[in-house]
């Protein structure tokens, strides 16, 4: 039945280089709706570059990206909910300001849901970002991003460098809040931590996809976990 819809994401013949450094090479990728997809690969494999291309923060040298059938632009941006690996909310803002901003710009933002999640984190909406710890800021950003009912959620290293308790919080937030018709693309280099929540895994190596399979298929066919397979594929 999904074949009647557009794929959530389509990348065709994508190329990106910085000077002589070729980061993404002739990459093709298609994601269907309702999936949680892990984008895994060692540092420097091009994960963040690919994500930034999808979110139109970078411009590809060649190739095409379609989101829900739309070329990248104001229309596609309304469909994508992006969690960058850095904090992008200005220091002067209060948490409530950020909520207002998301509500103003994104028609699919659910303010009540966000307030509820913030209350459970015991974050005061009147607090300024300046006064929040880095970990709390990141959680607030996750709350904002997951409170949207987007077609595609793009999460860049959401569990990189956090403690196990925060990791559990982040994963359960992602699992309980995403829109079931939407697809989540999570980049990470910590596969064992996210493996159980994934439907599919994409292995990215030197800017190319070396494997794109469902996690169950990998386990059934290879008889090993995605994490074990990863260690094999990316052995130094």
């Amino acid at each position: 039945m999904d074949s009647f819809k557009h794929p959530v994401l389509q990348c065709r013949g994508l190329n990106k280089s910085y000077g002589r450094h070729h980061v993404i090479k002739d990459l093709d990728l298609e994601l269907s709706p309702g999936r949680i997809v892990g984008l895994v690969g060692p540092n420097g494999a091009g994960k963040t570059t690919l994500i930034k291309l999808i979110c139109s923060l970078l411009t590809a040298q060649s190739g095409q990206i379609l989101i829900g059938g739309h070329p990248v632009g104001a229309g596609s941006k309304a469909l994508v909910s992006y969690l960058p690996e850095r904090t992008y909310l200005a220091d002067w803002m209060k948490v409530a300001d950020a909520l207002e901003l998301f509500a103003d710009f994104y028609a699919d933002f659910d303010r009540e849901k966000a307030l509820d999640m913030l209350a459970r984190l015991s974050v005061d909406p009147k607090a300024r970002f300046k006064t929040l710890s880095k970990g709390t800021r990141e959680k607030v950003q996750l709350v904002l991003v997951m409170s949207r009912k987007a077609l595609l959620y793009v999460l860049d290293e959401p569990i990189g460098g956090v403690d196990p308790a925060a990791r559990d919080y982040i994963l359960s937030t992602i699992l309980t809040n995403y829109n079931e018709e939407g697809t989540i693309l999570i980049s990470t280099h910590l596969i064992s931590d996210v493996e159980t929540v994934l439907d599919e895994a994409i292995f990215l190596k030197d800017g190319q996809i070396v494997l794109h399979k469902s996690v169950d298929e990998i386990r059934q066919e290879e008889g090993k976990s995605v994490d074990e397979l990863f260690r094999e594929v990316f052995k130094c």
Binding site: S56, L57, A74, A78, Y82, Y88, L89
Partner: peptide, 9 residues
Amino acid sequence: YLLHTLPVH
């Protein structure tokens, strides 16, 4: 990062 991911022209 925020500005360019907002649905604006």
